[in-house]
Amino acid sequence: MTHATVLQTEGLCKYWGGVKALDNMSLSFHDKSVHGIVGPNGAGKSTLLNLLCGSYKPTAGRILHQGEAIEDIRAYQFVRRGIGRGFQKTNIYPQVTCLENCCIAAQRRVGGSFNILLSKNSSALLKEMAEQALQQVGLGSRRDTIASQISYGEQRQLEIAMVLATAPSVLLLDEPMAGMGHEESRLIIELLKKLKQDYCIVLVEHDMDAVFELSDQLTVMVNGQHLVTGCVDEVRNNSKVKEAYLGQGDEVI
């Protein structure tokens, strides 16, 4: 069963001078599913994510969102189209409360961000949106805690809550489980399982067990090149993947 294609790349390239960080990448990301992206360090996974959220401009190729080419629009406009992005390094506003973090994220939806006379606490709707995002990731009890004082794992959850507060249809997540303990990872995995019922999730992750457990589609990248895309079992048994990942050998991932 495949869902509708939400986001698509066609021959996407990003060169840094002579270095081909990403070469000729053509992928389709489907609604209500997790598309895992794996590969050794320097494979171009983060580059791909930065292109998909508009942070980088592609050297060549196209990005289609719901059939429309969007590679030329500005980074902040990607969010308005519903493409939300979480960062590899925790990227929150540490000095304000968890709720305020989500308020910042959600305010674009209620508008008035250029109104210098409208009090920031004037919208009950905004607060509701922010609270809902916190509850979605299970941080409801932390709403009034300063973000720098919650645990690292919780900060990663908050990071996802902020993306959710922007009301996206696509979630681009860059190693949401990086640096986490087993139990914390479990929490995120369960969260993503829940989220994939409603969102198109593009997941870059080093934790192989997590990727295999979550992904409906899996893409393996090596040196900026596309190696193989398929369902988990196809990829797992692909000889090219084993070679790329483990070098010559007969060990099974």
Binding site: A75, Y76, Q77, F87, A105, Q107, S113, L118, K120
Partner: peptide, 24 residues
């Protein structure tokens, strides 16, 4: 203390994050 002020403060603390949340 306005909605503008909220985003301006966010811009000051973390411009990259604020762009990624859809603000110019």
């Amino acid at each position: 203390g306005s909605r503008f002020g909220r985003i301006m403060e966010a811009v000051k603390d973390n411009p990259q994050r604020t762009t990624a949340l859809g603000y110019n």
